[in-house]
Design a protein around this nucleic acid. Structure first.
Lengths: 187, 187
DNA sequence: GTCTATAGAAGGATAGAC
DNA sequence: GTCTATCCTTCTATAGAC
């Protein structure tokens, strides 16, 4: 295995790029900025990654991979199981990839970033799962508010981790996306 | 009043800039892009606005102004009144200034944008009001999730307005930020 | 693998004609 | 007020030495 010789520089580049992209955005961070943070030259960056876009892709790829895995798990579940799995899985994923979240998330709306194929449809399925596959418009909106709200809060919260934030987020999600929101009639 | 001669170009610039900034971000939109959209030259843009930053400021200023007004109104209220006013007022404001919301909101986290003085403290007060001035950490997180979630959902929803979205958003906010977290019944 | 040097494009902003 | 032309900076990316 060549994996023994872990490339320090490459890892450093990914780490610093994640930090800077999260702080100032993709367009707001230049290769020069990253090079200074890492302590190398711009040419070195472009030796390890073919382009700035490629660096972004490499950075976000693991997060997207895991998001796809979660999406796959959801496909085998339905109703309450899907909702619970979606909430826990998504909160966990966002907390572990907090620095990448901004990037993935921005690629959805602000087209500031190269898109990831199929991510839109995946996001919609996640919304559906969060909404418990309800047909009520208000449940759809609730799901979207919570989904995006979780992302933003985690991003803002910085790197101060802890089990508390995780619990708070799942609690909040459960509050909005509760099984029986309507005491009136059934759909 | 010179207000009779409403400057078409200036208005067009603001309008197109709002559209493009919302789509691709501040850094992701060049003066060239705006000029093409408006149908004028870059020099014309910079005749009407001293700089790209000044254009942004002019664009967002009314929204910030109204946000400050809402903040002032909240200062005279407390508890439930403050929460209800904050929710209704904020949803209304975000819906009316949906194109500017991205910009104001991004100025909070991603430092991609020139900051507005005092906006951080204002945002914190808004969070406090949304949380009903509760001391429970989970209520604080809930307030932040809803606050940011509302922004993102409105941004994503495009310009398709309607009373439905407004009602859905206030309903969702009420669900999370309800006065008594314990009882399972709705208000 | 990492560097310096530089190409080539695009960005914001200014000068001056009309 | 609006334009063209231009300046200067910054950016991504490449070339080639070591």
């Amino acid at each position: 295995m060549i994996a023994l010789t872990r490339n320090h520089t490459r890892e450093d580049i990914l780490s610093e790029a994640a930090r800077l992209f999260a702080r100032a955005g993709f367009k707001g961070t230049s290769l020069h900025d990253i090079a200074v943070a890492v302590g190398c030259s711009k040419a070195t960056l472009l030796y390890h990654f073919a382009s700035k876009d490629a660096l972004l892709l490499a950075l976000v790829e693991p997060a997207v991979q895991e998001l796809r895995a979660l999406d796959g798990r959801l496909a085998t579940l339905d109703g309450e199981d899907a909702r619970a799995t979606a909430i826990d899985g998504f909160v966990d994923l966002v907390l572990r990839y907090r620095r990448q979240v901004t990037l993935v998330y921005d690629s959805l709306q602000a087209a500031e970033i190269p898109r990831f194929p199929g991510i839109d449809a995946l996001a919609e399925r996640l919304v559906r799962a969060f909404a418990g596959y309800s047909d009520e418009p208000v449940d759809d909106i609730a799901a979207r508010v919570v989904l995006s709200g979780i992302c933003t809060v985690v991003i803002e919260h910085g790197d101060s981790d802890g089990i508390e934030l995780r619990d708070a987020l799942t609690t909040v999600a459960a509050r909005v996306l509760r099984p029986n929101p309507r005491p009136r009639q059934e759909s």
